[in-house]
Amino acid sequence: MHIVFVIAAFIAILAVALICIFLFAQGLPTIFEIGPSKFLLGQKWTPTNSNPAFGILPMILGSIYVTAGAILLGVPIGLFMAVFMARMCPGPLYRIIKPAINLMAGVPSVIYGFFGMMVLVPMIFDAFGKKFDMMSGDSMLAASILLGIMILPTIISIAETNLRAVPQELYEAAVALGASHERTVFKVLLPAAKSGVMAAIVLGIGRAIGETMAVKMVVGNQAVFRLPHEFLKGVRTMTTNIVIEMGYVEHGSLHNGALIATGVVLFVFIMLINALFSILNNEKASQ
């Protein structure tokens, strides 16, 4: 019977191995066929031209910008909210808010997408359209705001759990030394929960970089190289690139391979972020 459990665990490892194998097996040769620098650093994505170009740099940058924006917006609000729920929230209110945050985590991305398309995009267009000569509200800003909202529950719940886990003695000691409530929370408890907070942020980054359907409806999807200050313009992310074009690629074509290769790049990105986080964590632990 013991064997059954071992086999189960083994299958779990097998799943990830399979994913790696199949994605890399189709993706890597494509990258080499196109040429790694042409693929990763190329700025033109024109797969259906007679002389096709498969540069995904605009998409890589698009993913980075949109995720960065989401983190900039979502992390402060999420952390403050976590502080609120852990240390400043009256009991009865907490019993309503906590399930509400869990609910927010469960809302399907199509619904967030509707909200983004019908509320956020027109709102941005009306507010900035004339001043900044915008074509439409579909922009990096819209995507960042939407993603920021979507990662809030992730950041909030993990950060809050970790804040609550900080020993009460730390709080009491700080207060005994004369610090006010707010000062203690911000200067003593938050730093003590730092590794948990970092974990929340990393998970938030992962969620933001991987979101597809909701982003697709608000981000514009122009496969154009952008600079960070052009955040009112639209862009394409790696995820939306895959989803938009996958429907009509020919089997086994270079175009098909390029999309799978985009998936590989995405995968590697996430691995790097996780690895970075582990390294930071280990450094902290050994200090």
């Binding site: 024109t46 259906t48 031209n49 007679s50 398309m117 019908m118 995009v121 027109p122 267009f125 074509m135 439409s136 509200g137 579909d138 697709k216 409806m217 514009g220 999807n221 122009q222 496969a223 154009v224 313009k233 639209g234 394409r236 938009i244 429907g247």
Partner: peptide, 24 residues
């Protein structure tokens, strides 16, 4: 032909096109 304006917003569903034009 192949010279579609690169700044054009790419929408992949008929109804989304109608929505965008209706709202903008």
């Amino acid at each position: 032909g192949g010279d579609m304006y690169e700044e054009a917003v790419v929408i992949s569903e008929t109804n989304e096109i109608l929505t965008k034009v209706e709202e903008n």
